[in-house]
Every structure is written in structure tokens, then in C-alpha cells.
Design a protein around this nucleic acid. Structure first.
Lengths: 177, 177
DNA sequence: TAGTTCGTAAAGTTTTAACTGTACGAATTT
DNA sequence: AAATTCGTACAGTTAAAACTTTACGAACTA
């Protein structure tokens, strides 16, 4: 194995490890590998270059690259006189990390909260309705507490996401050791 | 729809919303629904009760409940004179949240870091080896920087997980608003 | 110790997600 | 405006995950 091969071999090993890790965040292994390729490639790449390098279809590259764009992990680059689209890896991993959670979590949180609020409203009606049998009312009261707890939790989660989005988290946990 | 039905209806709606949300964390919809069932059930439940309630197989309940146990979201309860195992939802969602990430992320982080360190060592050798061609050495130097960046990032992530595990995060983002 | 019951491993089935090939509109070139 | 190139929607295929059925060991019961 010559020097060049050793270099590429080391890269490949790390890219694979990284891609495996990314599956924890819901990113496919193939998509992770594509990110790794772009991360190490000095120049922005076209879809055709990616597909040749990874031995996959151009369609897969197209969808994978869009996924990565939506996660703010890859950005499109313009170069004059170039007809093809060029893509490069976003260089700030901290940005990518925070973006990943803010985008995917926000909608879930607010959806959950509005569901809770809707249910809570109905339960308050049940509780205050004199026609509600006493044993049902007891259950209603217990449920209300549980909804309230959930609501508090989602509020906390929301503030947690806030601290990621606003980069405030880096005041608490600084980047450089 | 009578009062009892209204109560169960509201529950069901929320459980479903919660289960959908959990899929963001890699938890199946069915497993999420099981958690919801246990969360609202006042008493701990047996596998048979769960399977009847959700209309699924007992085996599915067994594996699902174990998954939830591993995530610290469900705990086994002992009751004298009871042959069957009893399970109940863990009441502290903040604990569950932090446990979820600490357990799944830790291994990934350390795996990645050791891969990087191994690659870095090889690259340092390449860089210092006089036989390495100059243009390869240039690439090696670029790669070393990228590994170093990744290493810093994983170090940060590690400290981030630390702050979750040690509950220090709640100093920064307090539970009660 | 023979008969039950409970929990889970293993194999089989169904459902879901990833990936590919074809086809086509938009942009570009001649 | 005809021909070419590029990116992506869509339909089909393949791979993976979720779920079920069967089967069996361990613990309990009589």
C-alpha cells in the first residue's frame, strides 16, 4: 500500500465510522457516507462526480444531497461557467448539530402541545360538568395532572431547543475545552 | 359519546401524538403507544393486560417493554403474591430524556474518537515520513486538520452529554419556567 | 413429578423504507 | 427550433425493520 492509498484508507475508515454514528440521528448510512465524501473533498462536487465516487445512482445522489441540504449539512455553491450544480459540505458541525434538532423537534413539540391543550380543555369541561359521574371525575382529575406534567416537560424541551437555536448552549458548554 | 368515552378519547388522541413524536428519537410508533398506555394506567400492568389493551401479540409486548426498560422509560415492579411481571411507566420524563441520549450517544462518540485517533496516528507517520511525495503530504496535512476539527467536535459533544448525564443542564435550563 | 403458566428466543410473515431505472420538463447550446 | 444536458418526479424493485406465530425452558402448583 503506497502513501496515497494509506491516506484514502484512513479517510474511508473514518467516513464509515461517522456514517454509522449518524444513523443515531436518523441519517441513513449511504447519506452519511456522501456527507463524508463531501467533507474530505477539497472542491465542491457535482451529482455525477458523487455517483461515480460512491458507485450509486444519480437519483440517489440527488435525493441524498437534498436531504443534507435540508439539514444544513451541505450547501449549494455557484461557480461561473458551470452548468452543473455544485455542492460542498457545510464546515460548521456545531451549526449542523443544532439545526438538526431545532428543525425536527420544533414541529413535534408544538404539535404535541396543541394536542394536549385540546384534550385539557375537554377534560376541564368534564370536570366542571355536574353530569359527570364521580368515579369518572376522579379519573379526569388524575389525567389532568398528567397532561399538566407533559405540558411542563414540553415547555422545558422547547426552552432547551431555544438554547440550541440561539447558540446560548455554547455559553454553558463552550466549544474549546 | 358519554363522559367515560370522552376521557378515553382525549387520552387516545394524546397518546397517538406522543407516539408520533417519539419516532423522532428512534422509538417505534407501537412502542410509543405502549408507553402512553402505561403512562396513563394508574396500576402497573402485566404483559397480558398490555396485549389485550393494544390488540398485539404478547411477544411484541415482551420485546417492546424491554426496549422501554433499556431506555429507562419503564420499570419492573414487584408485588407479593403476583406471579406475572408488572411494569409501570417511569414517572420522570426528564430522566428518560437524558438517559435516552447518554446511552445511545456515548458509544458512538467514543467509537468515532478512537477511529479518528487511529487515522490521525497513521497520518502523522505519513507526514513525517520523508518518502511521502510532496503532493500527498499536502493532502495529509489538510486531512489532519479535518480530523482535528472532528475530534474537537466530539469532545464538545461528550461534554454536552456529560451535562445531560449529570443533570447539570437543569442549572442552565431550569425545569420550572 | 406431572401438569400449568409465564416470558422470551427463533423462524416466518408483513409492512416500511431505501435505492434504481425510466421518463420528462427546464435550461443550454448550436 | 432542434439537439443536448441536467435535475428530479414517479414507478418498480430490493433490502430492512416491525410484528406474529410457534416452540420451549424456567418457575410455579398440586
Amino acid at each position: 500500500m503506497n502513501e496515497q492509498e494509506k491516506l484514502l484508507n484512513a479517510r474511508d475508515r473514518f467516513i464509515d465510522s461517522m456514517a454509522k454514528n449518524m444513523s443515531l440521528y436518523g441519517i441513513t448510512h449511504s447519506v452519511g457516507r456522501l456527507y463524508g465524501l463531501l467533507y474530505f473533498n477539497e472542491k465542491p462536487m457535482t451529482l455525477d462526480e458523487m455517483k461515480d465516487e460512491l458507485g450509486m445512482s444519480k437519483t440517489s445522489m440527488s435525493t441524498a444531497v437534498r436531504q443534507l441540504q435540508e439539514l444544513n449539512m451541505v450547501e449549494k455553491v455557484w461557480k461561473k461557467g458551470e452548468r452543473k450544480d455544485l455542492y460542498q459540505a457545510a464546515d460548521d458541525w456545531y451549526d449542523s448539530f443544532t439545526a438538526l434538532f431545532t428543525t425536527s423537534w420544533r414541529t413535534g413539540i408544538s404539535l404535541n402541545m396543541s394536542t394536549i391543550n385540546r384534550s385539557l380543555k375537554e377534560l376541564h369541561n368534564l370536570r366542571d360538568n355536574p353530569e359527570t359521574p364521580d368515579e369518572v371525575r376522579a379519573s379526569v382529575k388524575l389525567d389532568i395532572e398528567k397532561y399538566q406534567y407533559a405540558l411542563d416537560y414540553y415547555d422545558w424541551l422547547n426552552r432547551f431547543v431555544d438554547s440550541l437555536e440561539s447558540k446560548e448552549i455554547f455559553n454553558y458548554i463552550p466549544k474549546k475545552e
